[in-house]
Design a protein around this nucleic acid. Structure first.
Length: 348
DNA sequence: AATGATACTCGGC
DNA sequence: TTACGGCCGAGTATCATT
């Protein structure tokens, strides 16, 4: 059996504990971009805030319009702190279950013969030791466990057997299936697919034509009730990136490069700490229409760190500006193709 | 044509 | 009506090599 553990409105719940006066208030965790006073997006909102229609991803300014005056707390995101709490939860889960895979800062999957019992123990332990609520789903498949958890939140625990799982997934609308986002949903609606079981009526060849080999096959398997029964191996982080918002929209290479320089320093701190060198470098460009573009390059010899903006980086920026006339709103940098460098601190 | 590496986009959280 | 972050991995497209 598989278990899926999901922390309830994680960031906002943590901040509720930090700010006891938040009791009963709408708590909104914000990513302020610094561009103007309230520019930025909502990361997480507690259930009180959801009642008012506040959602993740929403512009902060909209959330402020929806929130009740004097009964709301808008707080800046503090990822480092949430990461430390996440590590504590991670420790508790691994004390309890055999095979565990952390899938995001606030979600874990585990495979365990005694999953239903472990789930109960774990939920109580997280409450007792960290005073945090979570929701756990238990089912014969990884997907079933995740969807069971989604149905049970917040502060829930739901265990289902194979036939309940099949019914739950079959009758779910496709939009609610993890991995099916607005784009895939839109395409499925136009095929007349509403529930997961409707997928079984579509010719798999057609699904593959529309969604590609991997996703098409996956959708077909969902429709016929074939679900993943293995936890993928726990993977190491493969890339690190930092993105930031420019103080104003521009295509001035000087301004763009100085922002990249700032972001690069942060990303390199991470690389240093993790003792990684990298073989690939991408520059991320987000234009004023919020479309994302990238330019990247790879090196045959891994690089450890360099102090300043390199000529390669300047060239990537120049190449992008040459082929795209739009102003830039945000820029970012991404390093990948890691190689462990042991105790070595410099290279090239 | 097959394979592997690299470049780039998409979308979940 | 619009407004609007910062990550990461998955997947596909494209290129180089054989």
């Amino acid at each position: 059996m598989f278990l899926h553990l999901d922390m309830d409105y994680f960031f906002a719940q943590i901040e509720e504990k930090r700010h006891p006066e938040a009791e009963g208030l709408v708590v909104v965790i914000c990513v302020f971009s610094g561009r103007t006073k309230d520019s930025g997006a909502v990361s997480t909102v507690n259930y009180e805030g959801r009642e008012y229609g506040i959602k993740s991803g929403m512009p902060i300014i909209n959330a402020k319009r929806l929130a009740p005056v004097g009964k709301s707390l808008f707080l800046p995101i503090d990822k480092e702190y949430y990461g430390a709490i996440s590590a504590q939860i991670n420790f508790l889960i691994r004390q309890e279950c055999k095979k565990v895979v952390q899938s995001s800062i606030d979600e874990w999957n585990a495979e365990d013969d005694l999953a239903p019992k472990k789930a109960e123990v774990l939920k109580n332990k997280i409450k007792k030791e960290l005073d945090l609520n979570c929701t756990i789903g238990v089912a014969p498949s990884v997907l079933g466990a995740k969807m069971a958890a989604a149905l049970a939140k917040p502060d829930g625990l739901k265990t289902i057997d194979a036939s309940e799982e099949r019914k739950m997934i079959d009758e779910s609308i496709v939009e609610k299936v993890p991995g099916i986002g607005p784009k895939t949903n839109q395409a499925l609606q136009s095929l007349g697919v509403k529930q997961v079981k409707d997928l079984a009526k579509i010719d798999p060849i057609k699904l593959i034509e529309i969604f590609g080999r991997k996703s098409g096959t996956h959708l077909h398997n969902l429709g016929i009730g074939e679900y993943e029964r293995e936890l993928g191996p726990e993977k190491e982080q493969e890339e690190v990136s930092r993105i930031g918002t420019l103080s104003h929209e521009t295509r001035d290479p000087q301004l763009i490069l100085s922002k990249i320089d700032e972001l690069e320093k942060e990303a390199k701190d991470w690389l240093m700490e993790m003792k990684k060198s990298y073989k690939s470098l991408s520059i991320i460009f987000i234009t004023q229409d919020l479309k994302t573009h990238t330019k990247s390059m790879s090196f045959h010899n891994p690089k450890m760190w360099s102090q300043d903006i390199t000529n390669e980086e300047k060239e990537l920026v120049a190449a992008f500006l040459k082929e795209n006339p739009a102003n830039l709103r945000r820029v970012g940098i991404r390093f990948g193709g890691f190689l462990d460098r042991g105790g070595q601190t410099t290279l090239f």
